[in-house]
Write a protein that binds this DNA or RNA. Structure first.
Length: 835
RNA sequence: GCCGGAGUGGCGGAAUGGCAGACGCGGCGGACUCAAAAUCCGCUGGCCGCAAGGCCGUGUGGGUUCGACUCCCUCCUCCGGCACCA
């Protein structure tokens, strides 16, 4: 008897699948249903550990299950190949980002192949290749034409020591990642943005389509991120300054008679005009410090309220009162209008500000019930809704009517209107980096900003560039790149030297997989229409907001460009949990990784896959445990031995799965095993289709194996045909999870044609049913016994059998039976009370 | 503060309103062996009991129900996201 030689088996089947092209998706197969299964595009960095592998193992199990069920499956893989780490490595070690990246890609590809994942490798893409990023540029140009791509000034982090722009992740606690004592500064640069806010409402509303297939928490996070808020915009004219006014955004226009001041952000666009005559200007130290702080995110929430009076007053258009204009550090320039009305009685922040600076507190809303508010006695702001008081003509109104009427009055008076605001900001895509997609525009002295014509794409990234980590964009130092001709007038022009955010690459890559080698378009519409939407996307929760939101946005733009007809690219999303060791996520920097290749070499990839799926439900975090792997390895050994022991006798028999079997002709042992096998099959099938509780599926298969082992010698009362069927079902169920050993055992059993495609066995309902079932007997809801009855026994008879049972009868006698609940085939509960 | 998620043996976890702790890990005992490893078998939530059996038990307190780990409400703890968002 040979041992389970996973080394040989895994190599053998990986080679066979590759040679047969078994997992190639067919773009035009109308005879089978399509299934697009996608795992999130990996960033190839360093070595792959088991934390990465969990994502692919889950995806592969589902893909293989669908293959076995006869679907036409698209299961592709590629590389998110642009990005900062490659550039950092270049600065540190002098390697070219392309070499560093391609080296990592080779390693990733090797590991994924070693695990035998069912990818259609013909569709592999790498986003750093011109054949790919060409289409990033093409999309950018379409967006430029539609006004979705535009330029505006924006803040960046700047390290004065490096003389360079820092990405957010290069700023650590406010300091440069390479100079721990140099605080990052804020600079303003002209940058490119994509107008995602144009789709804000649609991005929010279309989530209704996703509710069935996306995790609720991801939708909640996106909703939160988009942050829709209904309110009103109201104009306050600045006193003694004709033509100068401030607009505020408020969700509580009903409190406008309680305004004590108008507060503006230190970064308000009209602050210079407001400060005229105040003795302060833009160089004021207090103003400067407030501006600097505005980007330091961490301690904002706890920061002390701070501000100063500008010397100016604003006219409240409702009450006609003069309100002082203050600059306040808690007013955000980026949200709403950058100015707010300060109503201390009804907003907690305003209350704290008013306390500190002695601004008056005016109560204009009284609670519907309870004691009336007294401005002098309030410990905190009253932020609930109520009935208006001291609000001129609006006094006495409930807040709903007040908000509506006041917005209408503002509109009629020409000083405001109701408005909806979003927290979502436009997407800044400019990066002052080398290793990314060049933004395809040129700057011409005569024609200004000119998009590069489509026939000149791609704008290639030059290979020779000095990466020193200093200066603005590295491309700016490459003369032959920068200097070019204007496509319009042929005159001298300079190329844009910023590159795109890598989230652009990953916002549409899944379309490219449908037609990866197309050189005249990002993809052919008809092919994408066949495969989309993605039936199942699998990835980490870390991408819950940005990647998924940008992808949804891109889809809508593509729809408006006529490339696709759908509005949402991803029908179902699954977010798997992290793999931890020692209670924290596996990561190189923590030094707690279990290398994927090391794992495969020590135990075999099937064992690694099995353990990954068995140790925890896929959506929960998984604690890696070496002894658990040993358990998984032990189980596969047992399965191997079980099949190996009987394979010799069974090899010559006809096909295993379709065997015609009738329980009435079976021995007791055969019946028991057949029932167990088909009950297991039923639940495993259900788990694959709906619940994805692979850990439970595996436990059930283990039970089946235990039961078969316990009945050895199986040949004694089990016909060869039935045994072959049983082992065939067992092996088939394991195939999506541990495909190599399953395929080997399938072959050992004498089956031909392979197991991986079209061989998922249908469970037979009639084989899952028990002849006799154990009925749980409860008295007043407490377990008091069990009774074996025929599966078909009617409710009345069941009830009688139970009441007559020698264990139960004494518990019931002498008492009044109030009620008997009978759940057929499961349980009887007798409700009694003392007479 | 707001929004999500979780809380079950020594551990990972199972149980889609119906036997709480399946399955695995670990532990204990045994078989095989000169011995060990591997493998196989048995036991393994707590308390009471010689036993049959009984009682308690799914973070807390309440509710719905014949029946609650499961549904509803309160509170506690932990994890994640967002956060002077006007």
């Amino acid at each position: 008897m040979a041992d389970y030689d996973w080394q040989r088996i895994e190599a053998k089947w990986q080679k066979a699948w590759e040679e047969q092209g078994l997992f190639r998706a067919d773009d035009r197969d109308a005879s089978r249903e399509k299934f697009y299964l996608l795992e999130m595009l990996p960033y190839p960095s360093g070595t792959l550990h088991m934390g990465h592998m969990r994502n692919y193992t889950i995806g592969d199990a589902v893909a293989r299950y669908r293959w076995m069920c006869g679907y036409n499956v698209l299961h592709p893989m590629g590389w998110d190949a642009f990005g900062l780490p490659a550039e950092n490595a270049a600065i540190k070690n002098g390697t070219h980002p392309r070499d560093w990246t391609n080296g990592n890609i080779s390693e990733f590809r090797r590991v994924l192949r070693r695990f035998g994942f069912s990818y259609d490798w013909r569709r592999e893409i790498s986003t750093c290749e011109p054949e790919y990023y060409c289409w990033n540029q093409w999309f950018f140009l379409r967006m430029l034409e539609k006004g979705i791509a535009f330029r505006k000034k924006s803040k960046v982090n700047w390290c004065p020591e490096c003389q360079t722009v820092l990405a957010n992740e290069q700023v650590i606690d406010g300091f440069c990642w390479r100079h721990e004592t140099t605080p990052a500064e804020i600079r303003e640069l002209d940058q490119w943005f994509l107008r995602i806010t144009q789709y804000a409402d649609e991005l929010l509303n279309d989530m209704a389509q996703l509710e069935a297939g996306w995790p609720e928490r991801v939708l909640a996070m996106q909703r939160n991120w988009i942050g829709k808020s209904r309110g009103a915009r109201v104009r306050f004219d600045v006193a003694d300054a004709p033509g100068l006014s401030l607009e505020v955004f408020t969700t509580r226009v009903d409190t406008i008679y309680g305004v004590s001041a108008v507060l503006i952000s230190a970064d308000h666009p009209r602050i210079d005009e407001i400060l005229v005559g105040s003795g302060r200007d833009a160089s004021d130290p207090q103003l400067k410090s407030m501006r600097l702080k505005s980007i330091r995110a961490a301690d904002i929430a706890t920061a002390e309220k701070e501000g100063f009076f500008t010397g100016r007053f604003a006219m409240n258009p409702f009450s006609g009162e003069r309100a002082p204009i203050w600059v306040a550090n808690f007013v955000l320039a980026e949200y709403g209008t950058g100015a707010v009305m300060c109503v201390p009685a009804h907003d907690q922040r305003d209350f704290e500000f008013a306390q500190k600076y002695g601004l008056p507190v005016k109560v204009v809303v009284q609670p519907a019930s309870g004691p009336a508010l007294d401005a002098g006695q309030m410990p905190e702001a009253y932020t609930e809704y109520g009935r208006l008081v001291a609000s001129g003509a609006y006094s006495g109104l409930a807040f709903e009517q007040a908000i509506e009427k006041m917005a209408l009055a503002a509109q009629a008076g020409g000083f405001g209107k109701s408005e909806i605001t979003f927290r979502l900001k436009d997407w800044g895509i400019s990066r002052q980096r080398y290793w990314g997609t060049p933004i395809p525009v040129v700057y011409c002295e005569k024609d200004g900003i000119v998009g590069v014509p489509d026939d000149q794409l791609p704008v290639r990234l030059p290979d020779r560039v000095a990466l020193t980590g200093q200066g603005r964009s590295p491309l700016a130092g490459v003369a032959e790149f920068v200097n070019t001709q204007c496509p319009k007038c042929g005159g001298k022009a300079r190329r844009e030297t910023d590159t795109m955010d890598t989230f652009v690459d990953s916002s549409w890559y899944f379309y490219r997989y449908t037609d990866p080698h197309n050189s005249s378009a990002p993809f052919q519409k008809e092919i994408a229409a066949y495969w989309f939407p993605i039936d199942q996307y699998v990835g980490g929760i870390t991408h819950a907001i940005l990647h998924l939101l940008y992808s949804r946005f891109f889809c809508k733009v593509m729809r408006d460009l006529g490339l696709v007809r759908h509005s949402e690219p991803i029908a179902r999303l699954f977010t798997q949990g992290m793999v931890q060791k020692g209670g924290v996520a596996m990561s190189k920097s923590r030094g707690n990784v279990v290398g994927a290749i090391e794992m495969a070499e020590k135990y075999g990839c099937d064992t690694g896959r099995l353990y990954t799926l068995f140790a925890a439900p896929p959506d929960k975090d998984l604690e890696w445990n070496e002894q658990g792997i040993e358990g998984a390895a032990r189980f596969l050994n047992r399965v191997y031995r079980l099949v190996d022991k009987h394979a010799g006798r069974l090899r010559g028999l006809p096909a295993a799965l379709e065997a015609k079997i009738h329980l009435s002709e079976c021995t007791a042992k055969e019946g028991r095993l057949l029932r167990k096998a088909h009950q297991t099959l039923q639940r495993v099938t259900n788990d694959f289709n709906q619940r994805w509780h692979f850990n439970s599926s595996i436990a059930l298969v283990m039970e089946l194996v235990n039961e078969m082992s316990a009945m050895e010698p199986l040949e004694a009362d089990c016909s060869s045909a039935i045994l072959k069927h049983l082992l065939g079902v067992l092996v088939a169920m394991l195939s999506p999870m541990t495909p190599h050993i399953a395929e080997e055992l399938w072959e050992m059993l004498g089956n031909t044609g392979g197991l991986a495609r079209g061989k998922w066995p249908a469970f037979r309902e009639e084989l899952t049913r028990e002849e006799q079932v154990e009925i749980i007997v409860q008295v007043n809801g407490r377990l008091r016994g069990r009774v074996l009855v025929a599966e078909t026994l009617a409710e009345v008879e069941t009830r009688e059998r139970v009441l007559a049972d020698p264990h139960i009868a004494p518990l019931v006698s002498g008492k009044q039976i109030v009620k008997v609940i009978v759940v057929p085939r499961k349980l009887v509960n007798i409700v009694v009370k003392e007479k």
